[in-house]
């Protein structure tokens, strides 16, 4: 799946239920999954420290370090004012087996 996102720190996009954020990290704009390492909170809404390259998630206030964030990176290429990236959504488990 070819996707794109505005090449600007803090820009977001989504595909189905999957969220992505563009972040200035380690000297360049990167595409990251918009999810905290802890419980998947929206790091795009967190408190970013661009100097240190980290973000505090708004859900439980856990810090995602540069190292944590790079694990969430999707390789991208720049085309004009956008970053292009590939994303293959995982197989969907609808949980239709229910509580039983």
């Amino acid at each position: 799946m070819k996707l794109s996102i505005e090449a600007r720190h803090g820009a977001t996009t989504r595909f189905e239920s999957h969220r992505f954020v563009c972040a200035q990290l380690d000297g360049q704009l990167r595409v990251l999954r918009d999810r905290c390492r802890h419980r998947g909170g929206p790091i795009s809404l967190g408190a970013w420290n661009l100097e240190r390259g980290c973000v505090v998630c708004p859900w439980h206030e856990l810090t995602n370090s540069t190292r944590d964030l790079l694990k969430q990176e999707l390789p991208s290429t720049r085309e004009g004012d956008r970053l292009l990236f590939d994303f293959e959504p995982p197989a969907v488990d609808l949980g239709v087996s229910g509580p039983g």
């Binding site: 419980r39 998947g40 859900w59 509580p99």
Partner: peptide, 21 residues
């Protein structure tokens, strides 16, 4: 923020009542 943890972020397997079941 607390409530979404309790309800498992919309994921049935994570919902606290499901865990108790």
């Amino acid at each position: 923020k607390i409530f979404i943890d309790e309800f498992g972020y919309g994921v049935w397997d994570q919902k606290h009542s499901t865990l108790f079941e």
